[in-house]
């Protein structure tokens, strides 16, 4: 795995989760700035998915391909899906839904690293 990207994604997702918690506390709805930040994070996750599959095909590592790709796709869809679910609830609870999605990202990235290291 590309370690700098994994670390960046983990820190970005945790930082964004903290920001969104702040939004929930002061009862503020997601705005354009937050949406832009989420989009940026998603771009990083798309890159991770591409690089991950590239490395899986290229390297002759003993990585469980199904599990690895499953986690890559999971990390790819979790933020957009929670965003859609969040939009359906125009209260602070809806905003809090984003926190759930953002906290799942670091877990998935960590698991990807573990699966990759176990196979390498």
């Amino acid at each position: 795995m590309l370690e700098p990207l994994s670390i960046t994604l983990t820190i970005a997702a945790l930082a964004l989760a903290a920001v969104v918690v702040g939004y929930v506390v002061i009862d503020r709805r997601p705005d354009r700035t937050l949406l832009a930040a989420l989009t940026l994070l998603e771009a990083g996750l798309v890159a991770q998915c591409g690089i991950g599959i590239w490395q899986l095909v290229g390297d002759s590592v003993e990585v469980s391909a199904v599990t690895f790709v499953g986690y890559l796709i999971g990390a790819l869809v979790v933020v957009p899906l929670t965003a859609v679910w969040a939009v359906g609830e125009p209260t602070r609870s809806g905003t809090a839904v984003l926190v759930v999605g953002l906290l799942v990202v670091p877990v998935l990235v960590l698991r990807l690293e573990q699966i990759w290291d176990a196979g390498g």
Partner: peptide, 23 residues
Amino acid sequence: GPGRVLIAVYAVFAVSAAGRSLV
């Protein structure tokens, strides 16, 4: 309301448990 958050957490577990179990 808060049910929205609860369902999101349940969905995460549903997907991860189902995926893990299928594998």
